[in-house]
Simulated scan of single mutants.
Amino acid sequence: MVDAFVRPARADDADAVARIQLETWRVAYARVIPEDVLAALEADDVAAQWRSAIVEPPTPRHHVLVALEGDAAVGFAAAGPATVEDLVGPGYASEERGGDEWDAKALAVSTLLVEPRWGRRGHGSRLLAAVADVAREDGFTRAVAWALDADQATRSFLESTGWAPDGVGRVLDMNGTEVPELRLATTLTDA
Results as ranks from 00 to 15, higher is better:
residue 191 A to V: 05
residue 144 V to L: 09
residue 119 G to A: 15
residue 117 R to F: 01
residue 13 D to T: 04
residue 125 S to Q: 10
residue 133 D to L: 03
residue 162 G to A: 06
residue 4 A to N: 00
residue 57 P to T: 06
residue 101 E to W: 01
residue 88 V to G: 04
residue 100 D to G: 08
residue 100 D to N: 07
residue 156 S to E: 15
residue 163 W to M: 10
residue 101 E to T: 11
residue 155 R to A: 11
residue 150 A to P: 01
residue 70 G to L: 10
residue 13 D to Q: 11
residue 102 W to V: 09
residue 96 E to Q: 11
residue 109 V to N: 07
residue 146 W to D: 09
residue 100 D to W: 02
residue 103 D to I: 02
residue 76 F to I: 09
residue 10 R to K: 12
residue 7 R to A: 09
residue 102 W to S: 02
residue 10 R to T: 13
residue 134 V to W: 12
residue 14 A to M: 11
residue 72 A to S: 04
residue 81 P to K: 04
residue 123 H to V: 07
residue 103 D to H: 15
residue 87 L to E: 07
residue 57 P to D: 01
residue 21 Q to R: 14
residue 8 P to Q: 13
residue 159 E to R: 10
residue 176 G to Y: 11
residue 75 G to M: 02
residue 152 Q to N: 00
residue 173 D to Q: 06
residue 153 A to Q: 13
residue 125 S to E: 11
residue 19 R to E: 15
residue 84 V to H: 04
residue 1 M to R: 13
residue 9 A to Y: 10
residue 144 V to E: 03
residue 38 L to A: 01
residue 34 P to Y: 08
residue 145 A to T: 13
residue 180 P to W: 11
residue 11 A to V: 10
residue 58 P to F: 00
residue 173 D to R: 07
residue 10 R to Q: 14
residue 171 V to W: 02
residue 83 T to S: 13
residue 58 P to Q: 12
residue 29 Y to W: 05
residue 99 G to V: 10
residue 145 A to I: 15
residue 147 A to H: 11
residue 74 V to P: 00
residue 19 R to Q: 13
residue 110 S to N: 09
residue 95 E to I: 11
residue 25 W to H: 04
residue 50 W to S: 02
residue 147 A to W: 01
residue 91 G to H: 03
residue 171 V to Q: 05
residue 6 V to Y: 08
residue 74 V to T: 15
residue 65 L to E: 05
residue 16 A to P: 03
residue 93 A to K: 05
residue 77 A to S: 14
residue 153 A to L: 09
residue 146 W to N: 08
residue 97 R to D: 14
residue 88 V to E: 12
residue 109 V to W: 01
residue 91 G to Q: 00
residue 49 Q to Y: 04
residue 187 T to Y: 06
residue 187 T to A: 13
